[in-house]
Design a protein around this nucleic acid. Structure first.
Length: 482
RNA sequence: GGUCCCGUCGUCUAGUGGUCCAGGACGUCUGGUUCUCAUCCAGAAAAUCAAGGGUUCGACUCCCUUCGGGAUCACCA
């Protein structure tokens, strides 16, 4: 069977990570099907909430994380147009079918009156049902009037791919608005028409739509349309509390993570595994792994808490994995993440630095704080030396002498390579009879004045002879001054 | 209030009647890897399987009840 899925966001702002997952699963399902198709549809029927540029942001996010759509904006396809505002005639046409069948009517009730009804219902501690107030006489519908569905409340049943066999009671079904006064359809109506005309086989959406299923089922029936398969996804929960993750909990845009230096591979991996797993003990999945292994029946029913620590861990895993595969390619992706002072340096030099620091990066964002001493001389901070746990056992004189010996020995070095430096450093250890913590710590700090850095011989080899010796001498000078 | 959903370590989860006095991963803690930080490796703590009743020789797994949590009841999606 051909699988056609869709992601149908509304352009009301950025896509936060809670929503992005419902773009990923339909993609995976479509891609694991030989002739599967994945459609991007923009649900822009709410003009009040429309945000300029949001569509571009959505496309940008999807491209970043690697969800390429087969049909949709910028791509075209046989089921277009892909913006709902460009599909008005289709909705009107379908709505008229319902009117003809007596299943839809123009609603003459002013919205203030409806609001009053609603208050009344809530005062009586009842669910609000407009059909309890259905007017006996209604005008003939024309554009500019809200059009309502005429419900046929009864017990309805369907099978949900995630939640199993479901029952919707009659009191879940109401006379919902089909077409708004502005002439545009509501989501409730539009998505059914669109999915039917686009040949969608599986609907993926958040479980907040579950209570509306009674209405949708009634609509499929009245429209004489075969219902697709339903895949309702459990919520992603905010880091604290039990509420679903939303923008007000600080749910960031997916692309904000790009700016923080999170790899799309890690984000995809993380999101896909929030509420789904393949039953193995694996943790790291590439996009292809996910396509190969994804299955609807292993989607979780309970909400999953959004745990950024796991995302960061996965990012580290991906940095190491991608470096092992192709270091240069990964390096190329670090552009924009280096400290400002790195601007004057060439790629060869930065690649060398990247090669020795990559495996202690959690995100590319760490590059800014971990590498500045490779690009500019750090200011000498004598306190940092004298308060160091290993170094404070020695007097300043002793430290200074040690530094002089080291500088002299390194200065004689003919070949400035990581291997030779390691050899020399070891010799120095034997000659001075110092512990590595003392000698290496002293040199490391003198040259970087950073709380941490890569292995000493690697650091010095990248820094180069001239810079290394100059920085050591600068510290010696400071000792002399005291 | 009506309707609907959910409930295994702090977190993500494995588990579909016996191989589970519950396994893995993140996080936490301890130790190791010639300096720091990280990686990597080894190990530890961490779930009376929400509770109570059944069914069964046997239940985390099936049934019922209770409790707890969440969603929804818009001319928003």
């Amino acid at each position: 069977m051909k699988v056609v899925t869709r992601f149908a966001p509304s352009p009301t702002g950025y896509i936060h990570i809670g929503n992005l997952r419902s773009a990923i699963y339909p993609y995976l399902l479509a891609k694991q099907n030989e002739e599967g198709s994945y459609i991007l549809r923009i649900e822009d029927t709410d003009q009040a909430r429309y945000v300029e540029g949001a569509t571009e942001l959505i496309e940008d996010t999807m491209k970043w994380i690697g969800l390429d759509w087969d049909e949709g904006p910028g791509k075209g396809g046989e089921h277009g147009p892909y913006f709902q505002t460009q599909r008005r005639e289709i909705y009107i046409e379908w709505a008229k079918k319902l009117i003809t069948k007596g299943r839809a009517y123009a609603d003459p009730t002013p919205s203030e009156t409806v609001a009053k009804y609603r208050e009344e219902a809530s005062k009586n501690k009842q669910a609000f049902l407009y059909r309890n107030y259905r007017p006996s006489e209604t005008p003939e519908w024309e554009l500019g009037m809200p059009l309502r569905f005429k419900a046929d409340p009864k017990d309805r049943y369907y099978h949900d791919e995630v939640f199993g066999d479901m029952h919707m009671a009659p009191e879940t079904q109401d006379d919902i608005i089909l077409i708004k006064a502005d002439g545009l359809p509501t989501y409730n109506f539009a998505h059914i028409v669109d999915d039917a005309t686009m040949g969608i086989t599986h609907i993926f959406r958040g479980q907040e739509y579950l209570p509306s299923m009674g209405n949708y089922l009634a609509l499929y029936e009245a429209l004489e349309v075969e219902a697709p398969k339903f895949v309702h996804l459990p919520h992603i929960l905010a880091p604290s509390g039990n509420k679903k993750l939303g923008k007000r909990d600080g749910a960031k845009s997916a692309v904000d993570y790009r700016a923080d230096g999170i790899l799309p591979e890690a984000m995809l991996n993380f999101l896909a595994c929030l509420g789904w797993n393949d039953g193995t003990e694996d943790e790291v999945y590439s996009k292809q792994d996910l396509i190969d292994r994804f299955s609807l029946d292993r989607i979780q029913r309970a909400g999953a808490r959004y745990d950024e620590q796991k995302l960061v861990w996965l990012n580290g895993q991906w940095i190491r994995r991608l470096f092992a595969e192709d270091p240069k390619a990964l390096y190329a992706r670090t552009e924009g993440f280096w400290p400002e002072s790195a601007a004057d340096y060439d790629d060869d030099y930065k690649f060398k630095i990247f090669s020795i620091v990559y495996d202690r990066l959690k995100t590319f964002g760490d590059l800014k704080t971990m590498t500045p001493y490779f690009f500019e001389d750090p200011s000498v901070d004598m306190d940092m030396l004298t308060s160091n746990k290993a170094l404070k056992k020695l007097s300043e004189q002793e430290l200074c002498d040690l530094l002089r010996k080291a500088t002299a020995k390194l200065g004689e070095l003919k070949e400035w390579s990581a291997e030779m430096l390691q050899q020399t450093l070891n010799d120095l250890l034997a000659e001075t009879e110092q512990k590595p913590a003392t000698l290496f710590g002293l040199i490391r700090l003198s040259v970087s004045f950073a709380p941490f850095s890569p292995a000493l011989h690697d650091t010095l080899s990248v820094l180069g002879r001239e810079t290394t010796l100059a920085r050591l001498n600068a510290v010696i000078t400071c000792f002399g001054r005291d």
